[in-house]
Computed example of a mutant assay.
Amino acid sequence: MKEPTLTRMQESVSSLKKDFIEWSDALSVGVEEVDQQHKGLAQMVNELNGAIHGGWGKETRDDIIVKLLEYTRVHFATEESLMSISNYPHLKEHKKQHENLIDIVKAYVKKYNENPEASNYEFLFFLKRWLVEHIMKDDKLMGEYLIKTGSVKTKKPTSWWGGLRKPFGH
Rank of each mutant, 00 (worst) to 15 (best):
K155A: 14
K2N: 12
K2A: 15
E117P: 02
R61H: 13
M136H: 05
K2W: 07
D35T: 06
P116I: 05
V29K: 01
E32N: 08
N87F: 08
I102S: 07
H134F: 05
L27Y: 03
D35I: 07
G40Y: 01
R73I: 14
H98Y: 00
T7W: 08
S24I: 06
E22G: 08
S81L: 12
T7Y: 12
V152N: 04
T154H: 08
E133R: 13
G162I: 01
G169C: 02
P4K: 05
M142L: 12
A118E: 12
Y88M: 07
L68D: 08
S86T: 11
T7L: 15
R8W: 07
F76H: 02
P157Y: 00
L101A: 07
E33I: 13
L141W: 06
L82R: 00
S12P: 04
E80F: 01
L48Y: 01
E79H: 02
M44Q: 15
V132S: 02
L68P: 06
G40M: 06
E3H: 08
L146I: 13
K58F: 15
E70M: 06
L82G: 01
S119Y: 00
S12Q: 14
A42W: 01
E93I: 08
S86G: 10
K156W: 06
E80V: 02
R8V: 07
L141C: 13
S81M: 11
H75P: 07
S12E: 15
K137P: 07
L146M: 10
E133H: 09
D63L: 12
H170W: 04
L69C: 11
G143H: 03
A42M: 11
Y88Q: 04
I104L: 11
P167K: 03
V31Q: 03
H90M: 13
D25F: 04
W130C: 05
S12W: 13
E122T: 05
M83S: 02
N49F: 08
S12I: 06
L131G: 00
D138F: 00
Y112N: 09
K58M: 15
L16K: 11
Q43L: 09
L164M: 13
Y108A: 05
K148W: 06
S28V: 06
R61E: 15
F123A: 11
Y145G: 11
S119C: 09
Y112Q: 10
V109E: 12
Y121T: 09
E59W: 04
E114Y: 04
Y88K: 04
L127K: 01
T158P: 03
G30P: 03
D19S: 08
E117N: 11
L27D: 01
G150D: 09
H53V: 08
G50M: 13
L41I: 13
L101S: 03
N100I: 11
L91M: 09
E70Q: 10
E93T: 13
R73W: 04
G50I: 03
V31Y: 03
T78W: 02
Y145S: 12
K17I: 11
M44F: 05
H170I: 01
E47M: 08
L48W: 00
A51E: 07
G169S: 04
E114I: 03
S15K: 14
W130H: 03
S28T: 10
L69V: 13
E32P: 02
